[in-house]
Design a protein around this nucleic acid. Structure first.
Length: 446
RNA sequence: GUGGUUGUAGCUCAGUUGGUUAGAGCACUAGAUUGUGAUUCUAGGGGUCGCGGGUUCGAGUCCCGUCAGCCACCCCA
């Protein structure tokens, strides 16, 4: 006997989880499309050179790679951005710019696992390329906001920053050449105590005076106006720095005009993000109830997406929702609905004599836009109802010989255990309308 | 990849200084009730104690390895 098991970091998805997952994917798809993004897809497998070309040593280490049956060196995509860059280099000619696409697909990284970190997970990317317009940056933030809101997350924060602000500060401090060291340390400010970050910076040879200035970033907060003023002071005369501060200010103002609730989007000068290709806006978003989970949706602006694959200059901005990490967080917080069915109506198979009637009723209800599960065996009614309740059906229909004779039906509201008798006189249309309005009432009640 | 920590029934956990056929609650199946689901009662199924090796007369209990989960580093969704 072979032991059934799954690889470290790879998981099965049971119905309750898969339903929640698909629900979020549906929301993401709807939100992306509502802003005019269009779907694309690319292969899971790429030539190794495509994937290793730009990656740092880290991503190269995490890459799943092997020789295919034809002896080609291939790798599995570890994000959706690199394949998108290749995709643009090949097709942007016929697509034109600006181009707005979304891409929801599985990626693989052979790194160590942790809560919310898997070796196989799904990303839901959206990007706007071929424009440097500030509106595209604003729209990116708005999409993230709509996405998290419509998924039903009650309490989240989108943290934004601008790489040029950080660069400006480094410029003023004369630390441009140490920027990757400094940014890496700064990025820890959310999690690590400032004193520890300071120690790390100083052990890397950063002067104490500069360290103090950098750490003051961690203390900044509160009212946006004051924060922006403080940042202006920190970037000094740096042109890029000033542009970055102005961009952040514009972003906050734009979000407010677009109707975003105050406090949902905040400036966090310590957000640096490891990926070195970000050049302007950077953003991360967190569940307020579970910040240690890490960012569930991150992104930013980059100068040149596909420079490795084409001479065409393609600036862009976008972000990525980590749906598997989000699901892990929502599950831990108990915010996931535990339904195990996607159907609206459970039709009790009461009386074998009426099998064909049940089929007709199910067909009519489906034609009326409802999802119906007809029990597959005429087991005891009590048992069938128990299963229907457990799986989370909103309603169950009980129609036995007595009901058929009287032209009625029992419509049971599973959650409230209420029983509504429907008089349909053998007219399917009446039944369909009645069940439909019962479902509407239940939805409205919640 | 490095370090730490955990691993007993589908789930949550008991399991005494190593000592007979490894337990409970919930869940599940069947019946009490040949027409009605969160109550009650009865009976029943289900565990190679993650896996492999070692120490021992004897290992769920001790040791080593391995696999998996979690935490930290690293990096990130």
């Amino acid at each position: 006997m072979i032991e059934p098991r799954t690889l470290k970091g790879f998981r099965d998805h049971l119905p309750a989880q898969a339903l929640a997952r698909e629900g979020i994917l549906d929301v993401a798809r709807r939100v992306y499309r509502s802003y005019g993004f269009v779907p694309i897809d690319t292969p899971a497998l790429e030539y190794l050179e495509i994937l290793t070309g730009k990656g740092s040593e880290e991503t190269d280490k995490q890459l799943y790679r092997f020789k295919d049956h034809g002896g080609r060196d291939v790798g599995m995509r570890f994000d959706l951005t690199v394949p998108f860059a290749r995709f643009c280099a090949q097709h942007i000619g016929q697509l034109g710019v600006p181009f707005k696409r979304y891409h929801m697909a599985t990626v693989w990284r052979g790194e160590n696992t942790q809560r919310g970190r898997y070796r196989e997970f799904m990303q839901c990317d959206f990007d706007t390329i071929g424009t440097t317009s500030a509106l595209a940056d604003l729209e990116t933030v708005l999409v993230v906001h709509d996405l998290l809101s419509q998924i039903g997350i009650k309490s989240f924060t989108i943290r934004i920053n601008d790489r040029r602000v950080l660069s400006g500060i480094l410029e003023r401090l004369g630390l441009v050449e140490r920027s990757s060291t400094v940014l890496r340390s700064l990025d820890k400010l959310g999690k690590t105590p400032p004193a520890a970050v300071a120690a790390e910076l100083e052990s890397n040879g950063i002067p104490a005076a500069a360290t103090a200035d950098l750490l003051s970033l961690a203390g900044l907060g509160g009212e946006p106006g004051g924060l922006l003023a403080a940042l202006r002071g920190l970037v000094g005369e740096s042109e890029g720095g000033r542009a970055g501060v102005a961009a952040l200010e514009g972003l906050l103002a734009g979000a407010e005009k677009a109707g975003v609730q105050a406090g949902r989007i905040v400036i966090d000068p310590s957000i640096a993000r490891g990926l070195d290709y970000y050049t302007g806006l950077v953003l991360e978003s967190f569940l307020d109830e579970l910040p240690t989970l890490g960012s569930i949706c991150s992104g930013g602006r980059y100068d040149n997406l596909a420079g490795l694959y084409t001479k065409q200059h393609l600036p862009g901005v976008g972000a990525s929702l980590g749906i598997d990490r989000l699901l892990a967080g929502l599950e831990e917080l108990g915010h996931l609905q535990s339904r195990e069915t996607a159907a609206d109506v459970f039709l009790v198979y009461f009386d074998q004599q009426h099998r064909d009637d049940y089929l007709r009723i199910a067909t009519a209800l489906r034609a009326g836009g409802m999802a119906v599960e007809l029990a597959s065996e005429p087991k005891r009614v009590g048992q069938q109802l128990k299963v229907a309740a457990k799986k989370g059906f909103p309603v169950a229909l009980v129609i036995g010989s007595d009901e058929f004779a009287a032209g009625t039906a029992q419509c049971k509201h599973m959650a409230s255990q209420q029983n509504v008798v429907i008089d349909w006189h053998g007219d399917l249309r009446v039944l369909v309308d009645a069940v439909h309005s019962q479902l509407e009432a239940i939805k409205a009640g919640h």
